[in-house]
Computed example of a mutant assay.
Amino acid sequence: MTEVTTQLISAEHLMLAKMQNMQLKVQPEFSVTANPLDQQVNAAAQQTPMSFSGAMRQVLDVVNEQQSVASAKMTAVETGQSDDLVGAMIASQKASLSFSALMQVRNKVVGSFEDVMKMPV
Rank of each mutant, 00 (worst) to 15 (best):
T2V: 05
T2L: 13
E3R: 04
V4T: 12
V4A: 10
V4Q: 13
V4C: 02
T5E: 12
T5S: 05
T6G: 01
T6N: 00
T6W: 01
I9C: 03
A11P: 00
A11W: 06
E12Y: 10
H13F: 11
H13S: 10
L14N: 10
M15T: 07
M15W: 10
M15E: 10
L16T: 09
A17F: 00
K18V: 01
M19E: 01
Q20W: 01
N21F: 04
N21Q: 07
M22V: 08
M22Q: 15
Q23Y: 02
Q23A: 13
L24F: 06
L24A: 13
K25G: 12
K25M: 08
K25D: 08
V26A: 12
Q27L: 15
P28A: 12
P28N: 11
E29L: 15
F30D: 13
F30Q: 14
S31I: 14
S31L: 11
V32P: 04
A34K: 13
A34D: 14
N35M: 07
N35G: 00
P36F: 14
L37D: 12
Q40H: 00
Q40E: 11
Q40R: 09
V41N: 06
V41W: 11
V41Q: 07
N42C: 06
A43P: 01
A44H: 02
A44E: 13
A44T: 09
A45F: 05
A45N: 11
Q46R: 04
Q46W: 09
Q47M: 15
T48N: 08
T48D: 14
P49I: 11
P49N: 08
P49K: 09
M50D: 15
M50Q: 07
M50L: 15
M50T: 05
S51I: 04
S51Q: 07
F52L: 13
S53H: 06
G54N: 12
A55C: 04
A55R: 03
M56E: 05
M56R: 05
R57P: 04
R57A: 12
D61G: 00
D61K: 08
D61T: 05
V63K: 06
E65G: 05
Q66M: 05
Q67Y: 04
V69C: 05
A70Y: 03
A70H: 03
A70G: 08
A72D: 14
A72K: 11
A72I: 07
K73G: 09
